[in-house]
Amino acid sequence: MYPSSQVELRPWSAMQISALVVVNIIWWMVMLAAIGFGVKYLSQCTVQPFIPIYLVVLGASSLLTMSLTYSSRIWDDGFVGVLIIACMMLLHLFGFAWFIAGTAWVYPIYPPNYTPGVTPYCHKTAYLFAFVITTLVWAIFIFMFVCGCCCGLLTCCSYVTARDRLIPFRNSFYGATSNFREPTAGDV
């Protein structure tokens, strides 16, 4: 028997590790680009000046969250581990709230005026990058929600169909193999 802190997990395959590394590298590059676009076009979105700030803060908070996630694997015990997990939880809550705020800033002005001399306008690269990132994250959220609902539904269905096999006959001893049934009041 293993103690509760030592759970034996199935090792990851090389394909799973490779896919995780590739997705992490891509997300790091996208978040660094978000910071770069946000800083570069900070004053070039007069129709909604929070869009470049949204990109900078989204990128910085995502990179900090990922760094803390990697660090939590190193210090998984003690005060430092608890502190890292608490910071990660706060960053996830902040990131979700910031993402909702960014959604409220990006979508209502679609499509903005992209001409720099005419006010109000928003730089095309900054706006489209924010729009694509926000839409992509919403699509991932919806996909994960649908997959979670399908898994939950499949689990419920398999439980319901297996229930008849798992619940023994009421008048028998659990695990008995005999077909013996105790007589009831109606039997003569």
Results as ranks from 00 to 15, higher is better:
P112K: 03
P112M: 04
P112Q: 08
P112A: 05
P112W: 05
N113T: 02
N113R: 08
N113W: 12
N113I: 06
N113E: 08
Y114A: 00
Y114V: 04
Y114K: 01
T115P: 05
T115Y: 15
T115R: 10
T115A: 09
P116E: 15
P116C: 08
P116D: 09
P116Y: 07
P116W: 13
P116T: 07
G117R: 08
G117E: 15
G117Q: 12
G117N: 12
G117V: 12
V118K: 02
T119V: 08
T119L: 14
P120K: 01
Y121K: 01
Y121W: 08
C122Y: 01
C122M: 02
C122N: 03
C122I: 01
H123I: 00
H123L: 03
H123S: 04
H123C: 04
H123W: 00
K124S: 08
T125E: 13
T125H: 04
T125V: 01
T125A: 06
T125L: 10
A126G: 04
Y127K: 00
Y127A: 01
Y127P: 01
Y127G: 00
Y127C: 02
L128C: 10
L128A: 02
L128Q: 08
L128Y: 10
F129V: 04
F129N: 01
A130P: 03
A130Q: 02
A130K: 01
F131D: 02
F131N: 03
F131V: 00
F131R: 01
F131M: 03
F131C: 02
F131T: 03
V132A: 11
I133F: 11
I133C: 08
I133N: 06
I133M: 09
T134A: 09
T134Y: 05
T134W: 05
T134G: 03
T135A: 13
T135D: 10
L136S: 13
L136Y: 13
L136T: 09
V137D: 09
V137T: 08
V137A: 10
V137I: 15
V137Q: 11
V137L: 08
V137E: 14
W138S: 05
W138R: 00
W138N: 08
W138A: 05
W138H: 13
A139L: 13
A139H: 06
A139N: 10
A139S: 15
A139W: 14
A139P: 12
F141R: 02
F141G: 07
F141C: 14
F141D: 14
I142E: 11
M144H: 07
M144E: 15
M144V: 13
M144L: 15
F145V: 09
F145I: 12
F145W: 14
F145C: 10
F145M: 14
F145P: 11
V146H: 05
V146P: 06
C147R: 13
C147W: 10
C147T: 11
C147K: 09
C147D: 15
G148K: 07
C149N: 07
C149M: 12
C149L: 13
C149G: 05
C149D: 11
C149R: 04
C149P: 03
C150G: 04
C150H: 10
C150S: 12
C150P: 06
C150W: 11
C151K: 07
C151V: 12
C151H: 05
C151N: 12
